[in-house]
Design a protein around this nucleic acid. Structure first.
Lengths: 189, 189
DNA sequence: TGGTTGACCAATTCACTCAGTCGGTCAATT
DNA sequence: AATTGACCGACTGAGTGAATTGGTCAACCA
């Protein structure tokens, strides 16, 4: 009934199924059972509609990352669980996966911008958690921006890049062993 | 005078200037002052000629990386100097830079394969140095393959990726501070 | 009358074509 | 035996017009 909601749902479905470029406004209108003009009373253009969808997805992802952390568990355990969850989301979530594929294949500018924004968001999220860890005395004071950045890049490399150049994916145990023995080891108080 | 050498030099010049795709065999022949057919008596096809050029470049890079290391200096200092040198080479060397650009813009398959081979070579080089460090008792035993991989990915992220999403490049001091405080700190005996 | 709509428009994209280019060959030449 | 460049078939990419798309707006309700 809520037009705006219908539009968001239709658009999310279409973007997830066909990606940004291959989704037409006519298609969104049809899926949402709405006249095309109606869409433009709620969203200035295709890109803003897209951004709204992605924003919802970012919130989902953050919620899932929060959900896997355990109150009272040591920092490195929660940090690992959160990062792994977000990377799993990255490869699993229909829309996110589709966008990564579209970026690789089509280079749609709007998609590239959005993917970059999502990464920035993830890094900011990690930075927040590190700062909270420092505040709680679990983590040594450090260059939080850079540590968040390198942590994300490291996980991305281990979880996502490794498989592209090797026959089999890295096991989570091997990842944990590496990071607990290196980065996390030097971060903890 | 040496035909093979002339061809290699002409090809190197052309690949460096125009990239792989935009280099024609006629052009290489002309630059090398050689009939086109002659090229095919030394190299099976364009791609093999290309691979020969890249192989020479890899050796140059390794030599430059070796050159910056200091006999007797601590492991993390030499490791840092070597990795920085190779990444500088990566962004500075005419052919290497051109290939990275071509991979981004054109997605030429032969170029992608070669770039991947170069990275594999770099990682292998880093792995060798870590193993030597372990043998000398400077470095704690560890998953050398993975440590080499993550070290390279970390440096690549800090030196090359950071600038793409931030206004200014990271200073070398900040990089050193981060890595000495994290990865290197836990690697050293 | 304020919200909704789809025919309509300009701009972009797509499929198609065909002339020109390129990697690779090989008979002729040195 | 080594070298060459004219030649070939496959591929490319510029040029084209037709079809599609994002966005608008006058008409149309409720």
């Amino acid at each position: 009934m809520d037009r705006r909601q219908e539009i968001l749902e239709g658009a999310a479905k279409s973007f997830s199924l066909f990606g940004y470029k291959a989704t037409t406004m006519d298609q969104v209108a049809k899926i949402a059972n709405v006249g095309k003009g109606t869409i433009y009373t709620f969203f200035a253009n295709k890109e803003e509609l897209f951004n709204a969808i992605v924003l919802k997805m970012i919130n989902e992802m953050r919620a899932e990352a929060d959900a896997v952390s355990v109150e009272g568990a040591p920092f490195e355990q929660n940090a690992h669980a959160r990062l792994m969850q977000m990377l799993k989301f990255r490869g699993t979530h229909q829309l996110y996966a589709k966008l990564i594929d579209e970026e690789k294949e089509l280079r749609t500018p709007a998609v590239g911008e959005v993917l970059q924004a999502i990464e920035k968001e993830i890094i900011f999220y990690v930075k927040e958690k590190i700062e909270k860890g420092i505040a709680k005395g679990e983590v040594l004071p450090c260059d939080t921006e850079l540590v968040a950045y390198i942590l994300f890049k490291a996980y991305l490399a281990l979880v996502s890049d490794w498989g592209k150049t090797h026959d089999e994916e890295l096991s989570e145990e091997r990842i944990v062993a590496l990071l607990n023995g290196t980065i996390f080891k030097s971060l903890l108080v």
